[in-house]
Simulated assay, not measured.
Amino acid sequence: MQVIATQHPEVLLLRPRVFGDARGFFLESYNRKAFAGLGIDAEFVQDNHSRSAKNVLRGLHYQIRQPQGKLVRVVAGEVFDVAVDLRRSSPHFGRIATMRLSADTHEMAWIPVGFAHGFLVLSEHAEFLYKTTDYYAPEFERSLLWSDPALNIAWPLDGEPLLSAKDQAALPLTECEVFV
């Protein structure tokens, strides 16, 4: 597994070894021992799978209690992926990391606990998988405004994104609950 730096030292882009031939390919998407060797010693408790159409923007989501670390990857299509450090005690508070994830590259991203996360679908459709370190708890879920000028995220958008009602009501960083 190759680790590729992002704009944030704790958000990692991971490139697995892919073995391919005329029949197709094989890759190991998760191995606890190998990930621990990379500094990701996480216990995953839930797997999620979403399918979204082009220009759907999901996020930026986080759980203020039962926070989730996430190992994310795309198995169909391509997305623009974003993580935002929401740990007030972090020297990188408010800092973003962005990357493109696609089924073609097989790359994954590690989003640590204490970060908001979201993605924009760039292809006609995208299927997105994520392993989480804690269970989904809707009562603790919060949404950070995707277009907050303070974050200065350069979303590769043509027009307006397709948002859920929850994401339309998201708050800017100055009004969000954050981690200590």
Rank of each mutant, 00 (worst) to 15 (best):
V84F: 01
R100Q: 13
R15K: 15
G159R: 01
G20C: 14
Q168L: 15
R65Q: 15
D148S: 05
V84C: 08
F44C: 05
P91R: 06
L151C: 11
H49M: 10
Q2C: 08
I111G: 01
S143Y: 12
A126N: 02
I153V: 14
N152S: 12
Q2V: 08
P91G: 13
S52K: 10
A42Y: 01
R32P: 02
H125P: 01
D21F: 13
F93A: 05
T132R: 03
A116P: 06
H106D: 01
L173H: 09
F115V: 05
Q2G: 06
P112L: 12
Q68A: 09
E177T: 11
S90V: 12
L86R: 01
L151S: 03
Q7N: 10
F80K: 11
A42S: 11
L14A: 03
A36W: 11
Q66P: 03
P67G: 08
E177N: 09
E10F: 05
E10M: 03
A83S: 07
G114T: 08
R15Y: 01
E139D: 13
H106Y: 11
V121H: 08
L27P: 04
F44G: 01
F93H: 11
T6L: 06
A126R: 04
P161A: 07
L162I: 15
T133D: 06
A165L: 10
L101T: 01
T6I: 00
R17C: 08
R51Y: 14
A150N: 03
K166F: 14
L162W: 10
G39N: 07
F140L: 11
G94Y: 05
L71Q: 02
D167P: 11
G39Y: 02
H106F: 15
V56W: 13
P9Y: 09
A76P: 10
L163C: 06
E124R: 12
Q66L: 14
P172I: 07
A150K: 06
P9T: 03
F179R: 07
M108N: 00
V3R: 08
E177I: 06
L122Q: 07
R51E: 15
R15T: 02
K33E: 14
E177C: 08
K131P: 01
N152K: 14
S164G: 09
V45E: 08
H8L: 02
L151K: 14
V72W: 01
L171D: 03
W110L: 03
L14P: 02
R65N: 08
R23F: 04
A103N: 03
L60A: 11
Y30N: 10
S143R: 13
S123F: 03
A103V: 02
D134R: 09
V121F: 10
G59M: 07
E28V: 03
D158R: 12
A169W: 05
K54H: 13
L13G: 00
D21S: 04
M99R: 02
S29P: 00
R87H: 07
L145W: 15
M1P: 03
E177H: 11
P91Q: 04
W146D: 10
W110V: 00
L120R: 07
L171S: 13
D148L: 10
C176P: 10
E78T: 11
A5H: 06
R23G: 08
L71C: 01
L162R: 15
A154E: 15
E175Q: 13
R32Y: 04
E10D: 15
R65E: 14
